[in-house]
Design a protein around this nucleic acid. Structure first.
Lengths: 350, 350
DNA sequence: TTGTAGGCGTTATCAT
DNA sequence: ATGATAACGCCTACAA
């Protein structure tokens, strides 16, 4: 690798452009540009020479210039409620995998449960001219109005985890209704008569769906629902502890609990257990997500196997497919990933 | 909000530029540009009119054009080993917080423990012309050679979690040595004589530091180290279970275990407990991170309180300070965040 | 206070 | 197969 002193200096001081390469090779910038992207109408000889020289000079394509010219960014936007949860961070890991493979960058922001921040994030993504958007909404969206600007410009938007109810939207989700139904039925089959449901904000569709599954399962099991069996909170660790203490003070205690996530379920279960409640015989437990804590809490938690990583991969693939224009028009606009109940000791009475 | 039909059409069909605004207002594009960024030499009257018109027309600044002109991107790069771990995802949440506040986008990629992928990520970030870089290295870096291109161009790089040993690097870390020392001493004080250490790849400095703290603590406690007391793995859930089974088969078992993360510690502890080993009296346990599992496993895990969210915030602030040029020259180039031992039942003998 | 004009680095459309 | 040239949208001396 021989390199002249001037060349070495250029490399350190300023960006090398295709013009610099062109000059040294006595060709035009157009030829360099074409060579670099292996345009077919370029002789393999010059192409090789250009590539070699580009490498030698330490050339790096300027993506802004290219973006400005081509009107696309090779960047995907990602909006999530929060980054530091088991489900979300695993989904992102899956997304990043696929995106990276296809040469896309990802820019991320979290809405932190604030509808206002979410809106500003959406705008920010639009301003950033992302090629496509991946969204997990903090709260329910009946329609895609918030994303009108994306649709107007034919920028694909994929909703994952929490889908969007608008029939025009692309969704990658699991069957929250069915999972909640199954797990509630399971509790009923274990002999639970008063099953409590702990869940998150009911203006978020994953929680309304789970709630609905729970209710229908109660009906189908011939069990009554009453308001004191529903507890809505943020499903945090603290909420789990609070829920446990709440249950301890109830005159008419539940004999089963189905919480909409494992973290909350685990801390609730723990609180009850410490107060001497026998799990599962006095109160049986079920959670959701198959979070690592579900396999640590004792008894291990019956839960729903949420395919996080897969969901990330599928959502990213779906988006990238649309970007490549290879979408089939009649393609289903909602992908429902397989998920199922995992029965563990927390709900198994003998 | 009155809007002409033509205007409405413009808005949907193509991007509004400052020229469009200029034309409608009978001013020059320069005036529009200046008004939009509240340049002081513009009359407040025209500035208001420009802002109003921009809003009415649905103008959005084209960041590529601006980036191309100004040579900066308002984007921070973030490289982590993996996204889906408690520590990393919490750090990212902190980073995103601060970055967002200051108007920076973040682009993320994970190295997944592959040095090759890490290198390609670094290059990719460089190509993306990030204004600054935040890095948690998969493996140890004795120097910043890999980042030479960044330093050559004065692009600040901040190393967090796993620092970089190069004296010129900026680091945000905790005192892994001291924490490991303290927690090992604590185990010794509880009467442990054969303390095992389970840790990750020793070419990663957080693990070498923890290992060193462990060893010095053994010495200071008058305890001998032997090779069979060191177990190196990937610290995963499975590794925890395997470690537990391994211990069960040891002829000369340890009476204490210090694992370099809680997840591995918890699954190891659980495996032993299920096999009938009494915790902490037969084997005392300690972990690292204060992961949620540490508060679920029984007995609760003695651990180190890792300030993840704070680390993310500090790292981002540090980077952004440098970008704003407000850095003090004599400023320390390594920030050590406060962290300390949390003693819980897994290590408390009575 | 505002306008003019050149250039940031690419790509794409014509020519040749 | 290659070259000349004009955008892409914005910013910023310099001029007025």
């Amino acid at each position: 690798m021989h390199m002249t002193a001037t060349l070495a200096r250029m490399k350190e001081e300023k960006e090398i452009t295709i013009y610099d390469i062109a000059r040294r090779l006595n060709v035009s910038a157009a030829t360099v540009s074409r060579s670099l992207k292996d345009h077919k109408s370029i002789s393999s000889d010059t192409r090789k020479r250009v590539h070699a020289m580009a490498k030698e000079m330490g050339y790096r394509s300027n993506s802004f210039a290219r973006n400005l010219r081509t009107q696309q960014t090779n960047t995907l936007g990602l909006i999530v409620p929060r980054l530091n949860s088991y489900v979300v961070s695993s989904i992102i890991a899956g997304i990043e995998n696929v995106a990276n493979e296809h040469g896309y960058n990802i820019i991320i922001c979290q809405s932190l449960g604030s509808a206002k921040k979410e809106t500003s994030n959406i705008n920010m993504m639009f301003d950033s001219r992302v090629d496509g958007l991946l969204v997990s909404l903090a709260y329910n969206a009946r329609n895609i109005d918030k994303f009108k600007m994306f649709f107007d410009k034919n920028i694909p938007v994929v909703f994952f985890d929490r889908g969007c109810e608008d029939p025009r939207s692309l969704n990658v989700v699991i069957d929250n209704y069915k999972n909640a139904y199954d797990i509630t039925r399971h509790l009923a089959e274990q002999g639970c008569r008063r099953i409590m449901h702990i869940t998150g904000n009911l203006s978020t569709n994953i929680y309304t769906e789970r709630y609905r599954g729970y209710q229908v399962a109660l009906q189908d099991s011939g069990l009554a629902f009453s308001d004191d069996l529903l507890l809505v909170n943020e499903l945090t660790e603290k909420d789990g502890v609070d829920a446990g203490n709440h249950i301890l003070q109830m005159a008419n205690k539940p004999d089963g609990v189905f919480a909409a996530n494992d973290n909350c379920a685990a801390y609730c279960l723990q609180t009850l257990k410490e107060a001497g409640v026998k799990i599962p015989n006095e109160i049986a437990f079920a959670g959701f997500n198959n979070d690592p804590v579900s396999r640590i809490i004792e008894p291990n938690l019956t839960t729903i196997n949420y395919p996080c990583h897969e969901m990330g991969e599928v959502a990213a693939k779906c988006l990238i497919d649309h970007l490549s224009g290879s979408r089939t028009v009649d393609h289903a606009n909602t992908v429902v990933l397989r998920s199922q109940i995992i029965v563990r000791e927390s709900s198994l009475r003998n």
